[in-house]
Design a protein around this nucleic acid. Sequence first.
DNA 1: AACGCGGGGTG
DNA 2: CACCCAGCGTT
Length: 322
Amino acid sequence: MGNRKSRTRRCSLGPIRRRSTITASLLRWYRRNSRDLPWRGERDPYRILVSEVMLQQTQVGRVLAKYPLFLSRFPSFQKLARAKSSSVIKAWQGMGYNGRAVRLWRLARTLMLDGGGKLPGDTRALQKLPGIGLYTASALACFTFGKQVAVVDTNVSRVLYRLFPASVRRRTVSRNETIRRGDLWDAAASLLPKGRAKQWNQALMDLGSTICTARAPKCGACPVQAHCPSAHQINRTRADQRKREPAREGIPNRIYRGRIVEALRNLNGTSSIGQHQLAVSIKPNYRRGDRKWFRQILVDLERDGLVRLARTTTGLRVSLPD
DNA sequence: AACGCGGGGTG
DNA sequence: CACCCAGCGTT
């Protein structure tokens, strides 16, 4: 793959000489500037998995604050699998995207049930597990099993697009600078320095998160600025017309969802709460006209495994699932 | 390909 | 206030 002669990849990234210079510069920079993150010192695949799932669309700073507590509460696949999903959802407090907690819990149960209690080592098998997509599978393969595979997250994606704009074409611009997926992963794979995938992937991530940032990148401090066609040319972030999300009185549904789960976390023990009392607590001006809307939110949450709904003679009661 | 999903930090 | 974040699953 690093063979200069038979490069038949679709997306050539230019002369091999310049690529070597870039990889060498970046690896050198990384040796002196790597972030010291707790999961980078871990060997246990479980502990790395937890960090990767937490890091899905969630900033490092927030994960740092929650990671140790979660691990002390659930130190292993087995402990996680034996726990009630409600306790996992509670431990997820403050992380956002609560569905990740449910999927992680389901993953642990799947593993204890028919996976021999251990993560598979290859990307393909990993991706079949709940909550593990292409990124997380690749990250696990590389960071815990030492596989020489590319790992492309939002940081890497941005760095590659800026460094190789001609080769890594941007197909669509959506929320994040989304790049045409195939090209991007191909480009990342063709860049991997032999035997250094782990350092290389983490170097790209660190560069993206500390220097080559989405807004106001610090090109003057960049180790590869001399090779970057985008250096000092990032003027403004794109107006990125966000689609409006489903909302009620200006507040997105997902915020109400978050409020509901948070309210249930704060109930004591196994208790549940009546639908109306819950509704009023998460939307103070709750009215009859909101009933259908609120019911749908609850049904969606139930589908996502985040709440349990119980029909009683007095009406609907809501709690965290067992 | 386009959505929906949390919630806090930043410019 | 709008953008941003170590993405994933569904449609």
